[in-house]
Design a protein around this nucleic acid. Sequence first.
DNA 1: ACTCTAACTTGCCATTGACAAGATAGCCCT
DNA 2: AGGGCTATCTTGTCAATGGCAAGTTAGAGT
Lengths: 182, 182
Amino acid sequence: MTQSRAYHHGDLRRALLDAAVEVMAESGPAALSLRDLARRAGVSHAAPAHHFGDKAGLLTALAAQGFALLAEALGNAGDELVDTGVAYVGFAVRHRAHFEVMFRPDLYRADDPEVVAARTRAGELLRTGVARRTGRGPDVDALAAWSIVHGFATLWLSGALPPRVGPDPEAAARTVISRLFP
Amino acid sequence: MTQSRAYHHGDLRRALLDAAVEVMAESGPAALSLRDLARRAGVSHAAPAHHFGDKAGLLTALAAQGFALLAEALGNAGDELVDTGVAYVGFAVRHRAHFEVMFRPDLYRADDPEVVAARTRAGELLRTGVARRTGRGPDVDALAAWSIVHGFATLWLSGALPPRVGPDPEAAARTVISRLFP
DNA sequence: ACTCTAACTTGCCATTGACAAGATAGCCCT
DNA sequence: AGGGCTATCTTGTCAATGGCAAGTTAGAGT
């Protein structure tokens, strides 16, 4: 996919987002620099501003993309509640950069319409995944399920978990989620 | 530890840390600037470097302080497992700035001896709190418990939780934790 | 009183985000 | 074919930041 047409660049917007993901995946969100992204894309230092306005604009686009990807991942998950949870963790691990931005609203404009729409959709899918297996109050169940997968994903990404958890986050997540919903 | 004598400033190190907590509590970690902290403390822009070396040094000190505070909070919690979990969430909410730095190892030197010591101690207290109530494998229980409280705290801080969860994070956390360990 | 050292300052540089003004290329319309 | 139109990108500039180097000062130790 992606461009081919090369005007001044062709598909700068996508190239910048891809570069941002790449940088953040290996160096964290703090290491992100618009000028660095521009250099990687081979354009001038002010080119990104045209597509995203400012840094927050770029991260807003990235967050929207992230919520859309999350919704897709949850939609493709199996029918069991556990599958939804594992998919959540899998998304966080596979799309680390997106995930880290999505839940840091001080970095972007969380009230952006596109973000709100994608986030809402992902939220619905998440709740649907839990609703299939409601033991107590569905609210409590949903909150507990979301908390446990989000916590596990966050801890995994931050490197805080001890080595004995093993190398496979999704397998470990499955075990932990099963503890909540046996 | 710590001095008190007031030379050029007296207690610059503490003043800078306090200012950093204040700034981050209202504007997030991204808004932190060493020069701004220096201005707030009424010293020159290079004064912070003497105490912390660089920005990562300041955040390292803050993380160590945070893990120590967490250990203290967990130590003061009640004997029940639920109490430990609620204390964890309470710490995150009450010491938001510390919490947000602690689990973002790309911002500081996670292998700093002081950080390692304080983190180890907090980890032990957390596992102790869970061990009192082991249903299945203690490892799985500990991981599930940590995940659920960490996830809830993180989601709360990021503002991602819907309003119907209510205004009191500790009360909501108690309900959620009870779902895991009834 | 003298020295010595930690604590702080002044000065500097490269990098960054943001803005303003200009250039360029493809498109549309006649 | 030609003439504008607009999105896209560039060049130039500014204030702010982190970090380094060299100098200064207060106060402790002797």
